[in-house]
Simulated scan of single mutants.
Amino acid sequence: MNNKILIVEDDAVFCRLLTRFLSRNNFEVMDAQNGRDALELMKLNTFKLAILDYRLPDMNGIDILKKLKESNSDAKSIMITRYGDKDIAAKAINEGADAFVSKPINPDELLEVIKGLRI
């Protein structure tokens, strides 16, 4: 069973925290700190779920979401941002995101959202 998760988050410390937390919860996790690296990982892997930060140094999470859906329409996605902007949430959902979570994120709550997506 594929339980591979992609995390795209430019805050390296937070990215590592999520990666370790989800790995300890029996997910295979790969991460990237920018869009370019995320797109390379998507070329080489099939992800069941992508957790995408909206604001990245080289593109935004919706750009990555679109590429994810083009290559794997069954993949689930969660958009995250510390800005909690309702317009970003609406745009993400309209582009195919399955959930939107505002920072700061409680890892246990994120895990519940992931379980709710039934990946």
Rank of each mutant, 00 (worst) to 15 (best):
M1C: 07
N2D: 13
N2I: 10
N3V: 09
I5G: 01
L6E: 02
L6Q: 03
V8I: 11
E9Q: 00
E9Y: 00
E9W: 02
D11S: 00
D11V: 04
D11N: 07
V13E: 08
F14L: 12
L18V: 03
L18M: 10
T19E: 10
T19S: 13
F21A: 04
F21K: 07
S23G: 14
N26S: 10
N26A: 10
N26E: 10
F27S: 06
F27N: 03
F27H: 15
F27I: 09
E28S: 09
E28C: 02
E28R: 11
E28Y: 07
D31S: 15
A32C: 03
A32W: 07
A32I: 04
A32G: 04
Q33A: 11
Q33I: 15
N34M: 11
G35S: 03
G35T: 03
A38N: 09
A38H: 14
E40W: 04
E40G: 08
L41N: 06
M42W: 10
K43G: 08
L44R: 15
N45I: 10
N45R: 07
F47P: 01
K48I: 03
I51P: 00
I51L: 08
D53Q: 05
D53K: 01
Y54F: 15
R55K: 14
P57S: 08
D58C: 08
M59P: 05
M59H: 06
N60M: 06
G61N: 00
I64T: 05
L65K: 01
L65F: 12
K67D: 11
K67M: 14
L68D: 06
K69H: 11
K69S: 07
E70R: 07
N72I: 07
D74M: 09
D74K: 10
A75P: 12
S77L: 05
S77E: 12
I78N: 07
I80P: 04
I80A: 12
I80G: 05
I80R: 11
T81W: 04
R82L: 12
Y83P: 01
G84M: 01
G84L: 04
D85A: 00
K86I: 08
D87K: 10
A89S: 12
A89V: 09
K91M: 10
K91T: 07
E95S: 12
G96S: 12
A97Y: 04
D98Q: 08
D98W: 05
A99N: 12
A99G: 07
F100R: 05
F100G: 01
V101L: 14
V101F: 15
S102L: 05
K103E: 05
P104K: 11
I105W: 14
I105G: 03
N106M: 06
N106H: 12
D108R: 14
L110N: 08
L110E: 06
E112S: 15
E112F: 12
V113G: 02
V113R: 13
I114K: 11
G116R: 14
R118I: 10
I119K: 02
